[in-house]
Design a binder for these strands. Structure first.
Length: 502
RNA sequence: GGGCGCGUAGCUCAGUGGUAGAGCAUCUGCCUUUUAAGCAGAGGGUCGGUGGUUCGAGACCACCCGCGCUCACCA
């Protein structure tokens, strides 16, 4: 803070605004008002001009453009819904016009007046009274918008600096309206998902974020510390093991929409904290779960977007009806000619390497199959597709396949080559689960930091008996990326993780 | 961590070794239906930092810092 009580990066533009603020105060215009009665939003007036024409309205918002013409002025103010033009005349609003001269782009005002159209046909509010609500001391990046002859919106000098946009998302939201749209969509996707699951009778629950053991996924955790207990805790990497305990406890359907935390790299598709929906339903298997995914995603598309066909990375993608269901083993065989069930580990390694997978050679056979799949099959999965049945080694929480040796009953959903969800028939045999954990334990000792920890309490819960259960995980951020056609996870997270400033 | 790129006014950007620039924003004056309003004028810079090459560096070189994209790891 400097002597003016502001952040130290004050400049001449801000000094000028402080002078204006003082001048407003000395003329009895309070620059930080307490409330304002709003009767309408900008878009409802513009969308329904006939209804509002000549009627009085009160609107409030941020000044985004000013055109002063001596004793009259036009301005655009932006509220939650968009922008609308206002018209002010000195002979009608008197002293307020003097105050208006001291206002800047970025200030927040409330106006009341009647609705009219200008000569050039723009719906506007003819102001009869104006109230300053908040004086803005820091200039916002000015972008000018204009509608060209073909009706397209053209933006000049758009605020584009990605770092500043993410760090100061509040500014991004003010000046880039399409950003706001994405987050409104995100919010609606989550609430419609919740509505769908609630309507199906599943119970939304909350499980611990701070966990003494972490589990449910292969990932490295964040570590934190409890002072009184003097113990390290982990931030959860998944909800799975706690939610399945609840199935043991007698809830037949539970879900949680939660933040998970993984201590790994950050890039276009990874943020250290991210939002996951996990669902577990008793007495069901993974085949049943595929239908749920189809129906739920279809529901979201219709409710939030009012359509089921999306343009994603240049592909027309349809979220309708049954998705294709393909066998992982079969798809790999089609492309590489290799039957991973009968092939040796070294054959799969060679194939993975020759198809461009970055394998070191110390991977398990299951991991190599997964690698081979990722480089050969996954990129071709454009339309929504379920890939079915995975190697047992890479799925320590999934139930052994009822027919296929060495495989588990698991599927992942893919769209335009990206993974959308992961699900399985849950492993409920406590002896098998214990053995799988022990296998993971060996991998940990061999240096695999992402191998699962043994969770004896979870095994104990299975010993009491967990009904057959289908489980599902959907990465909410990635789902939103898909449906809003955003290529970076940072564009669907309001405050993406950034290095600290300076 | 590797590769590529970027860093110049509040914002968006020019500036390829010779006086630091433009548009918008800001300020002054004029302007009562304008709309990237207009007209006339003005102010605003540690050219990311440090060192080097050079008579002379915003530019060239080295190193550092910050950021973006991308590859690897991962969901």
């Amino acid at each position: 803070m400097d002597q003016n009580g502001l952040q130290p990066d004050i400049n001449d533009l801000m000094k000028r605004r402080i002078e204006e603020l003082n001048e407003l105060r000395s003329n009895n215009f309070e620059p930080f008002a307490y409330s304002y009665d709003v009767s309408n939003y900008s878009q409802e007036i513009k969308n329904d001009f006939e209804k509002y024409e000549s009627k009085d309205v009160s609107i409030a918002g941020r000044i985004m453009a000013i055109r002063r013409m001596g004793k009259a002025s036009f301005a655009h103010i932006q509220d939650q819904q968009g922008r609308i033009q206002i018209y002010l005349r000195k002979d009608e609003i008197g002293e307020s016009y003097t105050a208006f001269k001291l206002l800047d782009i970025g200030d927040i005002i409330g106006v009341s007046g009647f609705v009219f159209k200008t000569r050039t046909g723009e719906t506007s509010v003819h102001v009869k009274s104006m109230t300053l609500l908040t004086k803005s001391l820091r200039p916002i990046p000015i972008a000018k918008e204009v509608i060209d002859e073909e009706g397209n919106k053209v933006v000049y000098d758009q605020f584009t600096d990605k770092e500043l946009r993410y760090r100061q998302r509040y500014v991004d939201l003010i000046v880039n309206p399409e950003v706001k749209d994405v987050f409104i969509k995100r919010s609606r996707i989550v609430s419609e998902m919740r509505a769908y699951l609630d309507n199906a009778g599943y119970l939304e629950v909350e499980t611990p974020i701070l966990q003494p053991l972490y589990g449910g996924a292969a990932a490295r955790p964040f570590v934190t510390h409890h002072n009184t207990l003097d113990l390290n805790y982990y931030l959860r990497i998944a909800d799975e093991l706690y939610l399945k305990r609840l199935i043991v406890g007698g809830f037949d359907g539970v879900y949680e929409i939660s933040k998970d935390f993984r201590n790994e790299g950050m890039d276009r598709t990874h943020n250290p904290e991210f939002t996951m929906m996990e669902l577990y339903v008793a007495y069901k298997d993974y085949i049943w779960m595929m239908e749920l995914v189809e129906n739920m995603v279809n529901h979201l598309c219709k409710k939030v977007f009012n359509k089921t066909e999306f343009e994603i990375e240049g592909h027309a993608v349809k979220f309708e009806g049954s998705w294709a269901r393909v066998s992982m083993v079969e798809e790999i065989r089609k492309i590489t000619g290799i039957d991973v069930l009968t092939a040796s580990r070294s054959e799969i390694y060679k194939a993975a390497e020759s198809h461009g997978a970055d394998v070191k050679g110390d991977e398990s056979k299951g991991k190599l199959i997964d690698e081979l799949f990722e480089v050969t099959v996954q990129p071709n999965l454009i339309q929504p597709t379920f890939v079915i049945d995975y190697p047992l080694e890479i799925s320590p929480l999934a139930k052994k396949h009822r027919e296929k040796e060495g495989m588990v009953e698991r599927f992942e959903g893919f769209v335009v080559g990206r993974e959308l969800c992961n699900a399985f028939s849950e492993l409920n045999d406590p002896v098998d689960q214990k053995e799988r954990f022990q296998g993971q334990s060996v991998m940990r000792e061999e240096g695999d930091e992402e191998a699962h920890q043994i969770d004896n309490d979870f095994v104990r819960s299975l010993e009491y008996g967990m009904p057959p259960t289908a489980g599902l995980g959907i990465g909410i951020d990635r789902l939103v990326m898909l449906l809003t056609n955003q290529s970076s996870i940072r564009d669907v997270i309001l405050f993406p993780q950034m290095k600290p400033e300076k």
